[in-house]
């Protein structure tokens, strides 16, 4: 790199220039396809969607009738869309803490096993490989079937409880039990693995030191050593769970049909834009509102929780 200034064209500068050109080319070769994909499949649809939201776009994605904010007005006033935000909040409020607690519990149990650890780890992780659609169908048609030989109704029948229509009847809202259990079964194992890895990373010296200081094993150690040591993993798990809950679609779509309840935003927008109505304008307006909400939530959590900021900024 130390080229003498007296020589105007040194081989080193020319090779650097060639190297820069070469690496620029490599950069485009390697990122180009992804950038093209990003633009074609992400940015253009987002822009298109924003454009559609100001048009009367039914049964077409190339509309010509400009209607201003009518679609936004419709989405915010007809109750279905705002109701779906409530549904999502309820769903997230149940599924996030329950999955967090269950996967942590499973991890703690598997972690303490002396033998067959690998076996149980695999057994609990296995449901992750199952698709939501397949699991939903099993839940709907055999576990929570409304007929007398459905699994849950059979079990309840032993105790003399009447058959329950788990999904058809929204009073009481048993459908939440079906939806939450199917997701729990499917995802708890995955988060268990994350917790397991974190548990294995806690230095044993901490427990030894705690024992010397007089901490009783069990709750006290768990509360003051294990939980604080798992804080980073817990935060990550909770955020992943929130994102997953937000993306929930399959089980709602497959378990609940012809309802006016139990529709999180993505399902509601699917029915508006791609379902029977084919109202791409209203659907896009909903998507834009949703995007704005997500931006707001992200900014707020950045301010209060600071997740995603650099270490220095904290």
């Amino acid at each position: 790199m130390s080229s003498t200034p007296s020589t105007p064209t040194t081989p080193s500068t020319s090779s650097t220039r060639k190297g820069v050109r070469g690496s620029t080319l490599s950069f485009w070769i390697f990122t180009g396809p992804f950038l093209v994909g990003l633009v074609v499949f992400v940015y253009i649809p987002i822009g298109w969607s924003a454009w559609l939201s100001f048009f009367e776009a039914r049964y077409t994605v190339t509309p010509d009738k400009f209607i201003g904010f009518d679609n936004y007005k419709l989405m915010l006033t007809n109750g279905d869309f705002t109701g779906s935000l409530v549904t999502f909040t309820v769903f997230a409020a149940i599924i996030v803490p329950v999955t967090w607690a269950l996967s942590l519990g499973l991890a703690l149990m598997v972690h303490r096993l002396r033998f067959m650890k690998a076996f149980f780890r695999s057994v609990f992780f296995l449901p992750t490989a199952c698709s939501f659609v397949a699991a939903s169908l099993i839940w709907k048609m055999s576990v929570f079937s409304g007929v007398r030989f459905g699994m849950m109704n059979t079990v309840l029948g032993w105790f003399g409880v009447e058959n329950i229509a788990w999904l058809a009847d929204p009073n009481p809202p048993w459908y939440w039990l079906v939806i939450v259990t199917v997701r729990l079964w499917l995802q708890a194992g995955f988060y268990m693995i994350l917790f397991l890895a974190a548990l294995q990373n806690i230095p044993p010296v901490l427990y030894e030191a705690a024992a010397i200081d007089g901490a009783r094993p069990g709750w006290q150690t768990f509360r003051h050593i294990t939980l604080p040591q798992l804080r980073a993993t817990s935060t990550a798990v909770i955020l992943l769970l929130l994102v997953a809950a937000y993306q929930a679609f399959d089980e709602f779509f497959n378990l609940l049909a012809k309802t006016t309840w139990g529709r999180p935003p993505l399902v509601e927008l699917y029915y508006t834009a791609l379902g029977d109505d084919q109202d791409y304008g209203a659907g896009s307006a909903g998507a834009v509102i949703l995007t704005l909400l997500i931006c707001m939530v992200t900014l707020l959590q950045g301010r209060f929780l600071g997740f995603g900021k650099g270490e220095d900024a904290r």
């Binding site: 709907k140 048609m141 409304g146 007929v147 009447e162 058959n163 229509a165 999904l167 009847d169």
Partner: peptide, 12 residues
Amino acid sequence: MFTSGHLLLDAP
């Protein structure tokens, strides 16, 4: 009829 328990609901 729906609430009476006489209807078959959630059939496979």
